[in-house]
Computed example of a mutant assay.
Amino acid sequence: MEHILRPIYQERASQPDTLGVILINKREDAANITDTFDAVLLIVVKDAEHPIYSKHYMYGDSKMVMHILTEERLRKWIFIGSNKRLVDWIFYGKIMFDRNEFLFKLRSELQEFPFFGRKLKTGIQYSKLIRRYLEGKELFENGHHLDAYNHVVASLHHLGRLSIIDSGLYPEVTVWAQVKKIEPAIYKLYEELIMSNESLEKRLELLFLANEFLINSRTHDGAQHILETMLGQSTWTIQELHDHPELSYYSVDLEVFVEYLIDKGYIIMEPVIAKNESVFHRHYCVDKQFVESEYGL
């Protein structure tokens, strides 16, 4: 497959914006790693009009795909964890071109998993966990048990990913295989949810109790990144939080996360008078005394 794709990636490699090229061949035991294609050509560029650009090719009975990603989109997907295959591709794909050792350094970053990167990924997964838990609990209390079940499954996935991140690894495609080794207690909860003979209502009730305990026990680590970021200035509007380059990774979960941390005492809401004196803007700041006692910051 390499010789077939060589003219394509060599043309891209000659362009000054191209940072690296990786070739991923289909594995018989994991065809979905390549989205069922026989080969994936991943090209990372510094900048482009489209952050993601794809082309499909065929050669005889073989089918191939080329993905061109900007560095910004690549790093966003790595931080958010929204494309599990990407980590597998970077780790196990064959490097065909590497400008200034960009891909070599990226692999090293992923293997070493810097502490700062771990805090950001922890915060993102924790914020997603909060949303799933709150929405699922509301559905459960309103009697929508099947919809609540979906949220509980998703919340356990986020808990599993948090345990993997906490161990210094990256969540891969086979998340539960990793969780079973790293955090057997969370794996056991997952088994109980899907295999227990108890009624669905009883299973959900027990899982929400367990989730609440696990969420509370992880607040310290889950909130650290956003709190350290917010200490960078005295107060924030919600738009300023959304616009921050790192906090933007939290996306739609940011506002729910902020409200949760207000409820837990980590963040203070400060009313600021608006043009209409009966309406106030909501500004946000870190409760420094509380955070100092928690983190020693």
Rank of each mutant, 00 (worst) to 15 (best):
W176V: 04
L129T: 02
V173G: 04
R99P: 10
S127A: 12
F140D: 01
I165M: 07
L110P: 08
V152L: 07
K121N: 03
F115H: 14
T229Y: 10
Q224G: 00
S167F: 13
I124F: 15
Q125M: 10
S163I: 11
N216Y: 13
G143P: 04
F97W: 12
P184E: 11
E138Y: 14
E138F: 06
I186Y: 11
F97C: 09
K202H: 09
A210G: 00
K180N: 00
Q224S: 08
I164L: 09
R132P: 02
L204W: 07
L227S: 05
F116E: 14
G168L: 02
I186D: 07
I124D: 05
F113C: 10
T174V: 06
K121R: 15
L120Q: 12
L207P: 00
I124S: 03
I186G: 01
R203W: 07
M96T: 01
F97G: 09
Y126F: 11
S199H: 07
L207A: 08
D98G: 03
Q125R: 10
L129S: 01
K202T: 13
F113N: 14
G136Q: 04
E201Q: 07
E109K: 15
K137V: 03
E172D: 03
K119M: 11
S127I: 02
A223K: 14
R107E: 13
F116A: 13
P114G: 10
P114E: 10
K137E: 02
Q224M: 01
L129A: 05
A210W: 12
F116N: 02
Q125S: 12
K202I: 10
E141I: 12
S199M: 14
Y133K: 02
F102P: 07
Y170C: 09
L103Q: 14
G168H: 05
L156S: 11
A185D: 11
